[in-house]
Design a binder for these strands. Sequence first.
DNA 1: GCGAAACAGCACACGATGTACGATAAGGGA
DNA 2: TCCCTTATCGTACATCGTGTGCTGTTTCGC
Lengths: 193, 193
Amino acid sequence: MAKRPIDRRVARTRETLHQALLSLILEKGYEATSVEEVCERANIGRSTFYAHFTSKDDLKRSGLDHLRRKLLERHRSASASMPAGTRLLGFSLPMFEHARDHIDLYRALIGSKGGAIALDTIRQTLCDFVRGELATTKGKDATGIPRELVVQHIVGAYMAVLIWWLDDGAKLPPGQMDEFFQRLMSEGIASYS
Amino acid sequence: MAKRPIDRRVARTRETLHQALLSLILEKGYEATSVEEVCERANIGRSTFYAHFTSKDDLKRSGLDHLRRKLLERHRSASASMPAGTRLLGFSLPMFEHARDHIDLYRALIGSKGGAIALDTIRQTLCDFVRGELATTKGKDATGIPRELVVQHIVGAYMAVLIWWLDDGAKLPPGQMDEFFQRLMSEGIASYS
DNA sequence: GCGAAACAGCACACGATGTACGATAAGGGA
DNA sequence: TCCCTTATCGTACATCGTGTGCTGTTTCGC
């Protein structure tokens, strides 16, 4: 399990390729980007690309794994210092903040050009969070609503709001976005009908 | 605007191609399906394909336009016989029912293999519905929450629930799904925290 | 039936993919 | 510093899907 330090050339190549793909996604979208273009942008031979990744999708997956680990880590440390009862939607603020801190990354992955797989990775990660929290409030499911439906409901609303915020330029501060989302989610939209 | 009757051969070819694409999406997903395969499945020459559609995406778009028109029509007739005040989420039941009635179509377009563009078409159509209804309840937006955020929140939650329902085999009846969704949406999830 | 379409089948050029291999360069341990 | 290992490069090659053009043949609508 103790892996020896990776050759610097390998680390450099992988990182450069990741960056190149990201910048190209921002410019023309994921689907429209070819392996050849990624290599050209990264100044790396195409044969070298295939020495590290089996395809364009593989490169993207690798980047998403990295993101997923970061999200897990962030969620752990954030929810630890959170009073029970507020944890069900506790992913919201840290997530908004993480998105603001890495807005280029998120706009590339999530925005209208990013493609759906990246989005699904984040979605599933959030679903895991919510599912975990929901499992701790066992007594409250006398509503007859399937638990997984509630999970999808919460995360679906959140992802839509997040995407809208990012595509709109992330104008509102994360704290306010979090407040709005939590209000809508916990109190419902009764005041609108 | 009065268009002359379309040549039967044209109608037949187009319809056959649409069906062939649908069945292939169900089998192996949209991205993994080639124009050649669609033609083979449809027993139609590849050159004929390009006489009708400029690309695979074009064929899909054409099918989605058809679906969009159907949804608009259904929503109009349904919301007409609906008391004001219940219309904001009024798209829910008709949509669940439409999905159940054309479950193969929806599973192909929306399911995990369907690709994201189809999903976005439905999402945008629903957004239009909600945006329209929300505009009629002007007085209620003293919450300070941007109206578009509310729209995205509602439709995001709905789409997630719809997709879950379909991917899970549409076991619950549309009426119950509608009830669950409306409860979660109007009363919020306060009872869970 | 006749003329105008829609259609099939084929060939072609093009671009992207994934693989293979020898030559060169760079890293890391001694 | 030297030397061995390994990464990288460049190139060539086979494969596949795409979009277009062309020539007959079939079929529809009048």
